[in-house]
């Protein structure tokens, strides 16, 4: 499981452009959110909590068994279940510049 391979968390998480969604990020890695494949209501709620396209996301601790897991985004820590995290799709190519809003903050 991902937990076993987990690397020591660094203060600067390594970008992992290969990860397709949040569940594929390992401890100490980060990804840029591309879109939320969720019903409007859930997507809005997550956006209010900081899950906006263009923001960097890093996985943190989890409940025993790895689900739900805490994700660090935009200065907050939010716990999500596996099935929700899978629907948060990460940006695949790192060449595309992030929107200004995301780049300047925190």
């Amino acid at each position: 499981m991902a937990v076993k391979k987990a690397r020591q968390a660094k203060h600067n998480p390594l970008p992992n452009p290969g990860a397709a969604n949040l569940m594929e990020l390992r401890h100490g890695e980060s990804g840029i959110l591309d879109r939320l494949d969720l019903p409007d209501d859930d997507a809005r709620r997550l956006m209010e909590l900081g899950f906006l396209p263009g923001h960097a996301i890093t996985p943190g601790h989890s409940a025993p068994g790895g689900d739900p897991r805490v994700f660090r985004v935009d200065g907050s820590e939010v716990a999500l279940r596996r099935e929700t995290a899978k629907k948060l799709i990460l940006r695949q190519t790192s060449t595309e510049p992030a929107p200004r809003a995301a780049a300047k903050v925190s």
Binding site: D42, L49, P68, V70, S76, A79, L80, T84
Partner: peptide
């Protein structure tokens, strides 16, 4: 359905 769980820590 299994509902979503989102909780700020």
């Amino acid at each position: 359905n299994r509902s979503s769980f989102m909780l700020e820590m």
